[in-house]
Amino acid sequence: MTEFPTPPTDVPAIEVVDLYKRFGELEVLKGVSLTVKAGQVVCVIGPSGSGKSTLLRCVNRLEEPTAGQLRVEGIDILDPEIDVDKVRTRIGMVFQQFNLFPHLSVLRNLTLAQRRVLGRGKEEAAEVARQNLERVGLLDKADAYPAHLSGGQQQRAAIARSLSMNPDMMLFDEPTSALDPELVGDVLDVMRNLAGSGMTMMVVTHEMGFAREVGDDLVFMDDGMIVEEGNPRDVLANPRHTRTQSFLSKVL
């Protein structure tokens, strides 16, 4: 099993410095700098096309930044020498579309990477998986296939799948945007508990209530740049920039 030295607590979990990302002619990120401290919950909001998902996807290198620096627990993850698979085991990722593996049962969804990547034995992996399923309230669905779960259950299973890798931090890419309104609450509850347990989280979301209640920091992005950042209650109640004001007036 791969062990990483526990970083000193004053090293930020995620450190983004002057990050640029270009898709052909289109510049999606135009010099973004952001720090997520260990144990912090940072929510990123903004209109669609503002680059918030791209920023999140750069953090575990699902997208390759065009320029800038990116450090995870003090380690430069854009270093070409770095083993990106190893970095990713420390960063959990939750997608808008859940992306559970439809050909595997829920339990196998949770044990696959544990066994293949962390080299855990069958019993150990299943035990970790069950603990995490219990945590998200899906222990009774261990043998079900994803197609037989509701969207909310699928997303909770996907969160449990990420947690089974014992990550140091979790990235959420609009985790509730694809859900029917009545299923959003269960997923947010799981995320709230996770935040309460001290997990470092970076959450791209449209759930302003969640951001206000759980977030330590709120980042408003527009047009590839961070427009405003601060305490969620302050930013949501008294946005300073006109762009923040007009965005919030549309969504609140």
């Binding site: 698979d85 990722m93 593996f101 696959l112």
Partner: peptide, 20 residues
């Protein structure tokens, strides 16, 4: 998204291909 999910869990490109 299937490949992205597998790679995000730290699985290598070949394991992703074979098992997902």
């Amino acid at each position: 998204g299937q490949a992205e999910a597998a790679r995000s869990l730290g699985m290598s490109p070949s394991w992703t291909m074979v098992s997902v």
